[in-house]
Amino acid sequence: MSLKKKKSLDFEVNLIPFIDLLSTCICFLLLTAVWINVASMNVKQAVGGQAADAGAKKPTVWVAMSQGGDLTLDVKDAHVPAKLEKFTIPGLQGKPNLELLSQAVAQLKATEPKLNTALIQPTAASIYEDIISLMDGFKKSGVTDLGVSPL
């Protein structure tokens, strides 16, 4: 009986093609990558948008911005307590106080769950960044239908 020479089970995978493939992938992805993630804050125009929905009478909160960052919230077509119908949120260092705003909106949503529309009325001196942060604050609080009115 002759002993058959056993073939070694150890083998080496040729890794060079893998490296080539991965390098090509990395180069392609690096070249085509978009590093700035641009998004959009979608709004409807208060005047035009409301005219179309005038018959619906949705609960709406009108938000008047003022120069010191104060926000005056005026709730319309909603069943809310008298103290929540119209109130002012004082600004914080010249900017809208978003923390107080989210608390106020949470209160409003608790009494009027159908409140999903906010119409922002900026002044001529309102800073674009503040308007966007206000919209962002409303969206975070669950008020998703936003409008902005012209001066």
């Binding site: 641009v38 709004v43 409807k44 125009q45 001529a124 001196a125 800073i127 960044e129 966007i132």
Partner: peptide, 28 residues
């Protein structure tokens, strides 16, 4: 981001007049 709304107001008004009712403000 530092623009004042008075500079954007003309665009908002013009887009309303031209029938562009939905506005998307570009943000990061």
């Amino acid at each position: 981001r530092r623009l004042k709304y008075e500079q954007l107001n003309s665009i908002v008004l013009a887009s309303s007049q031209a029938g562009f009712s939905d506005i998307k403000f570009a943000v990061i």
